[in-house]
Design a binder for these strands. Sequence first.
DNA 1: CTTTATGGTTGACTTGGATCAAGCTTACAC
DNA 2: GTGTAAGCTTGATCCAAGTCAACCATAAAG
Lengths: 247, 247
Amino acid sequence: MMPPQSATNTISLSVIKTACSNCNLRELCLPFGLSIEELERLDDLVSTRRRLKRGEHLYRSGVPFDAIYAIRSGFFKTDVLLEDGREQVTGFQMAGELLGLDGISTEHHTCNAVALEDSEICAIPFSRLESLSREIHTLQHHFHKVMSREIVRDHGVMMLLGTMRAEERLAAFLLNLSQRFTARGFSHAEFYLRMTREEIGSYLGLKLETVSRTFSRFQEEGFIAVQQKHIRILNVAGLKALMNHRG
Amino acid sequence: MMPPQSATNTISLSVIKTACSNCNLRELCLPFGLSIEELERLDDLVSTRRRLKRGEHLYRSGVPFDAIYAIRSGFFKTDVLLEDGREQVTGFQMAGELLGLDGISTEHHTCNAVALEDSEICAIPFSRLESLSREIHTLQHHFHKVMSREIVRDHGVMMLLGTMRAEERLAAFLLNLSQRFTARGFSHAEFYLRMTREEIGSYLGLKLETVSRTFSRFQEEGFIAVQQKHIRILNVAGLKALMNHRG
DNA sequence: CTTTATGGTTGACTTGGATCAAGCTTACAC
DNA sequence: GTGTAAGCTTGATCCAAGTCAACCATAAAG
């Protein structure tokens, strides 16, 4: 499906709806901290919108890089594939988060980004982002913070994969999702998983059976209620306690 | 030990030696791709040098961030600690590589950086780096590439921790070190490990005994010769082959 | 030189999570 | 509706890596 083409009499409304300055995610996304005038300059840059169906790739490993992407709605995974077919999911991204930072390094994307539900993204041409951030200090600094935050997040994943047991990994995963849904105004205690057990397993360095069994165990112990992809967190403290218990 | 204080008659020599423009690591480090004039502007910024003894911290998790650091000589590890004492080594860094990018996000460092041998670093005040990269496009772009490269590296570590077996992890680790030593003009086949088996294990998500046993197995199979921290790689192809064999 | 501490190796045994396998649930295509 | 495929759950078994323990190597301190 193509982005809606505006008829002449509706252009202004459509433009307003597309702009960063009117996006309700702006405090989570790249515009964070910008003034009104600065925001308007960013609007010029973020002109391209694109809708993706569930299962569609936003980009694939190896393709030339020229833009980063802000998620306007929907849910994505990024993954890296080894030659022998093994997959590592490197992250799950939701509204307001940026995709594509991996491509700056070599000017080619180094992972795949796949929509896990129907989604909408804003493309931000990278060379234009660099020019603009040479002019707008706040934008420059915020962009640096976003990249750095990604590095810090990655360290957290390394910690998880390197030192935690299956229960701890899954508890950390659920608490992280919960916290991010909350930041977006959704319930912290109830949500639908957009990814399969296999994708969760790949992200957490576990097999899908282990993910499934661990969910069941959490349910037996009253920490959560699971029904396929529907999760209710019943005992946040319990999940947190799981994580600081032994190595 | 303090950095050498120059007497008046030796200042110019000392300054020349300290400058990026005369640093033999410049093609591996931040100055990559800069013109002579641009390099000289970077020199003004990278004024502070610091020596660290083996075991000394360059920074600690939690301390305010104000500079990133280029390694001029030596060897570092970065690690993250969990409250219960578990450690995850997030990387090993050598000459020409940057440390401290994790601190930009929250304006506080989020990991520890420790010298694994006597080392020397150049401190680059971050706000001045941002100003200068608003003026020098090449510097800005290269800095973005360096941050992005770190993200890509982290994805590689996730792949390693999430999907590889002990043998594959250790082979990947040795090949990575070898390749980085080569890029610095050292032998690709013979080097001293600066870190303990425990630190290797922490980085690779293995226990020190497993690291030790896997080294021994590699030796039995003729891939390497190990004597404590001294490593000779005898069969690069063999190590590479280990990695693409099954999941 | 000897002592001591830190780090490395190796062996015996255990275990958490993988593997293999069967059956179940849900959603969608026809 | 019914059939089918994809995804999830659960059980039985296995094995790679962890744990526990003893001993060895090297380097620094006295």
